[in-house]
């Protein structure tokens, strides 16, 4: 039996964190979340639609099924916007958890490290449990650990790109230097990306589009769950080292003598 994943004061049996965006509808969203076995679901904070104030409330829908919520600061480009969004999220959802995203650039949606550090300092000081979306750089991740984050969430490749983990070596480096929960956030395209992340020593994976935009989101969510479990088990089991040359698996000794009788 595996240890639960501990993020700050929270504890999870599932190591798969799923987003709630870009699904065809709420029904498929809920089915996919169930199939993924996830316990933690990300949400964004946005203006209420005053033309439809009683419209279906996502939060009550998710809470009815006992999903815990991880609000994000998606779309924020400044420290102030991100901090205020985090405070609004805490007020609305009564959680100290915050996925901190401070975006630097519209095309890459890469995080702005300088602003991220400042945002983390402010939010940690205000009592938040911060999960920062960050670059896959061991130095940045170590600094985020030292600043008091409860996890680090480096990107594998740009958000929504589906390009997987572009620099697996960096994930191994981050794993060797950071003791906080390491969660791959962004870039997953398919199940093998999740398995690889876990094999590289990630404690969990956060993804959204790879499931929401799959031809069959529910089936893909199930594949992600299995990949996450398989990768985790492989990581715990310990893979064999890579070698440059072949090594026979069958014994070299006591080979059959097939020579014909002389003469």
């Amino acid at each position: 039996m595996d240890q639960p994943l501990k993020i700050g004061t929270e504890s999870f049996h599932s190591r798969l964190i799923l987003g709630s965006a870009r699904y065809p509808n709420h029904d498929i969203l809920l089915k996919a979340l169930r199939a993924g076995g996830t316990e933690l679901v990300t949400v964004a904070i946005r203006r209420v639609n005053l033309d439809d104030p009683t419209g279906e409330n996502l939060v009550s829908l998710l809470r009815r099924e006992n999903f815990r919520l991880l609000p994000n600061t998606a779309g924020c480009y400044t420290v102030r916007d991100a901090v205020i969004t985090a405070e609004l999220a805490r007020e609305a959802l009564e959680t100290n958890l915050i996925k901190l995203e401070i975006i630097a650039d519209e095309d890459t949606l890469y995080p702005d490290a300088e602003k991220l550090f400042e945002g983390v300092r402010i939010l940690v000081d205000k009592g938040f449990q911060v999960l920062p979306y960050c670059i896959d750089d061991p130095i940045t991740c170590k600094k985020l650990e030292d600043l008091g984050c409860v996890a680090v969430m480096p990107l594998g490749s740009p958000i929504g790109s589906g390009m997987g983990i572009l620099n697996p070596y960096n994930f191994s480096l981050i794993r060797s230097r950071v003791s906080l929960p390491l969660i791959l956030d962004a870039g997953v395209g398919t199940a093998s990306d999740v398995a690889l992340a876990m094999e590289l020593g990630c404690d969990g994976v956060l993804l959204d589009t790879a499931v929401a935009h799959a031809k069959d989101p529910v089936l893909m969510a199930e594949a992600m769950r299995q990949a996450c479990e398989a990768g985790r088990k492989a990581s715990l089991a310990g893979r064999i080292p890579r070698k440059f040359f072949a090594e026979p698996s069958s014994p070299r000794e006591r080979m059959v003598d097939t020579r014909r009788k002389a003469g």
């Binding site: 987003g19 964004a44 904070i45 946005r46 203006r47 994000n72 609004l88 958000i159 959204d208």
Partner: peptide, 10 residues
């Protein structure tokens, strides 16, 4: 005033 709530997000 800004009146907000949680909505779908990644």
């Amino acid at each position: 005033l800004e009146i907000v709530r949680a909505t779908v997000g990644g």
